[in-house]
Design a protein around this nucleic acid. Sequence first.
DNA 1: GCAGTCTCGATCAAACTCGTTCACGAATTT
DNA 2: AAATTCGTGAACGAGTTTGATCGAGACTGC
Lengths: 250, 250
Amino acid sequence: MLPKQRQDQIVRALRADGAGGVKVLARKLGVSEATIRRDLEQLHAEGRLTRVYGGALAVDGGDEPFADVNAVHAEEKDRIARRAAELVTDGESVLLDIGTTALRVAQHLHGRSLTVVTSNLAVLEELQYDEQIELIVLGGFVRRSYRSLVGYLTEESLRQIHVDWLFLGTSGVRPDGRVMDSTMIEVPVKRAMINAAERVVLLADRTKFPGHGVARVCEPGELSMVVTEPDSDPATRAQLTEAGVEVVLA
Amino acid sequence: MLPKQRQDQIVRALRADGAGGVKVLARKLGVSEATIRRDLEQLHAEGRLTRVYGGALAVDGGDEPFADVNAVHAEEKDRIARRAAELVTDGESVLLDIGTTALRVAQHLHGRSLTVVTSNLAVLEELQYDEQIELIVLGGFVRRSYRSLVGYLTEESLRQIHVDWLFLGTSGVRPDGRVMDSTMIEVPVKRAMINAAERVVLLADRTKFPGHGVARVCEPGELSMVVTEPDSDPATRAQLTEAGVEVVLA
DNA sequence: GCAGTCTCGATCAAACTCGTTCACGAATTT
DNA sequence: AAATTCGTGAACGAGTTTGATCGAGACTGC
């Protein structure tokens, strides 16, 4: 295996688990710890991960939850979330994706009379004690670093339900309008969510728009609506409008 | 687990509960109290939490009463839970019922290499950050007052799995050995749990033994084992033994 | 206010991790 | 064919983290 390939795999492994120790990575990739350290140093210099004592953390590039003090885009992201929450009428049902974007939407749903369905453990925490909201948790394997549920149990649960709205996060929307994600394992769950929803709303701030990701989640045509910022890339927006997607600016 | 990860989880745990004691955090994260103190000191310096005597508070809503963090343990009930936890061998899978009894068992599973399946939200909170444990959450409607998941989604999820052990709580065991519950809505879930388990273990302190309940959960013959206290009613115990149930005294 | 219990920070040894250095082998250049 | 470059693994001393222990101080119940 080429060094570059190995380094890509390190980044990928961190995306999947949120973090990794030097020893674990060395065993996983079949090289010595010294090599891993050199890789981590280099990748840290490139900004592709965060080096910490004992290993490295995934850098929050996609829609990765809980990299705490990321207050830079907080204001904009929150405006998108608030706009999304306004779309929903009392009495309707809402499915919330994993990630911080969906969590922000949940924060704007407090006190509303809604049915909320989620595989996002942070959303569960947020809405657990809100008596107005009928809360439904999808089953699944706990993915600690992302605070989410995944796997066939999650997909199976999604096959049992149907909701009015799905609010979807993303690691990026490609210039041709395709919705991407940074981790493969979530894709089947996201696809099952899309199939379980009447209307699919994608939430994407300007950093995701256009953006990239390794795994394709869906075609633009599968979306009903996209909520984004006014100064996001117009070309990508036009591409989406052409595909019949309603683009809402927040 | 990396030190940075552990510190993130401390902050997360505090956000969930509002506050946390040094002892509780140490057990939850599987490190010594000394390490937790050093983490708290560091996180306090970073302004990510507020250090108080005995533990720490989340930065936002720091007006939570801290008294219940040091709540006294019910030693007798805990003995039953510990005995139950000892039944399980590393590598096996465990299904935990709702209720405080099952939560107590979960507290004794920290650091074990197990697969834990549950619809108990308190168990989810307890084991969420334990890396050794593969944690699976059943789907379902959130029942706030009981901190549990119920409904057809839960039953459907249970049909997808099979576990080595089920630890069942109860409102009471009738003198003829029948297991009862105080609420109807949980019964279908409990029945589905029994069907999904290789061995069914009932946990019942002396107050439940004999005891009452409005809804019948199962016949004594469906149980593999009962863990109870030495001074619980001998007549009911005899009834159970006759039905082929192994009675363990803790 | 007093005794008992709990918590704190300091200290220390052990375990772990880090960056550096050196040697080896493979691929590339001279 | 020889020299050079590059990536790698092993080894080592320096630095960091961890858990145990202990005396001082804080808290609680009476």
